[in-house]
Computed example of a mutant assay.
Amino acid sequence: MSEACSEKIDIKRPLTVGEVASRSGCSVSAIHFYEREGLIESWRTSGNQRRFARDVLRRIAIIRVAQQAGVSIAELRAVLRSLPNGRTPTQADWEKLSAGWRDRLDERITALTNLRDGLADCIGCGCLSVRQCPLRNKGDHLGRGRPGAALL
């Protein structure tokens, strides 16, 4: 067994910002951004260096997945703050959180599918008319509101 493999990892030892970045796959600037936004926390050593609890890695994983699902930073902050004692989300927490985000993804998938399917028709007709275009002004919804420029 190599020396590196036989070395025990101290699971209670806090992580530096560089270690968090390396282990999470995020840049150091992203870690600082998440901290500024109140999504993760650190503390300072006597030498004024940031230290993070190891559970920050799970929080960052959740943050990254939520961002890919289109969850805003503000919503994510509120969700993470709603957890008891600000603890890191458990599997049960994740299932509850992601269920709501799943509905949002389904809506986005439907909207994007409709957009994709309508593109061929729109490009095929070449109209690109604000009055007639089924993608830009479906059912002339812009004309219903009021006369004049509606997109300003």
Rank of each mutant, 00 (worst) to 15 (best):
L97C: 06
R131P: 10
E35M: 10
T88L: 05
S42P: 07
R81I: 01
V28T: 01
Q68D: 14
L115H: 11
I11D: 06
W94T: 01
L97M: 03
H141G: 02
A149Q: 09
T113H: 13
W94S: 00
G18P: 06
S6T: 03
A61V: 00
G118I: 02
S46N: 11
L39H: 07
K12Y: 01
I40K: 01
D106A: 11
G38I: 08
D103W: 13
K96R: 10
L105D: 04
V79C: 12
K12W: 03
Q67C: 15
W94N: 02
D106T: 13
R108Y: 14
I63Y: 06
R50S: 04
P14C: 11
W101I: 03
A21K: 13
P84D: 13
W43A: 06
K12P: 04
L115N: 12
R104W: 13
D55P: 04
S22M: 10
A66T: 03
R50W: 01
D117I: 06
V65L: 12
L142N: 07
G124N: 10
L115W: 14
L39P: 05
L152N: 11
V65Y: 08
L15W: 05
G86N: 04
E41Y: 14
R131C: 11
I9F: 01
Q67W: 13
Q67T: 09
L76D: 02
H32A: 11
L119G: 00
R136N: 15
Q67Y: 09
G124P: 08
G70L: 08
R87C: 04
L15G: 02
C5P: 07
L57G: 06
D103Q: 14
I9T: 12
P147T: 11
E41G: 05
T90R: 04
W101V: 08
T45K: 08
A21G: 15
G139N: 07
G143Y: 13
I40A: 01
L97K: 00
T113K: 09
R77H: 15
N114H: 13
A53E: 05
S72P: 06
H141D: 00
G126C: 03
V20T: 11
T88Q: 03
R81L: 03
C5S: 07
S22Q: 11
D106L: 14
L119P: 02
P84H: 11
E41F: 06
R59G: 08
V20S: 06
Y34C: 05
A69Y: 00
E3D: 15
G38H: 07
G100E: 00
D10L: 01
L57F: 01
R54Q: 06
D121E: 09
I123Y: 09
R59L: 09
I109C: 13
A99D: 12
Q68C: 14
L83Y: 05
G148L: 00
R87K: 08
I9S: 02
Q132T: 07
R77D: 12
S98W: 06
I123L: 10
G25E: 01
P147I: 08
R59I: 08
T110D: 14
L80S: 02
P89A: 03
V71D: 00
D121A: 04
A78F: 00
V130D: 10
L128K: 12
R108T: 12
V130I: 03
E3P: 12
T45F: 10
K138A: 13
E107H: 10
A92F: 09
G124Y: 14
R36K: 15
L39V: 14
L80D: 02
V65S: 05
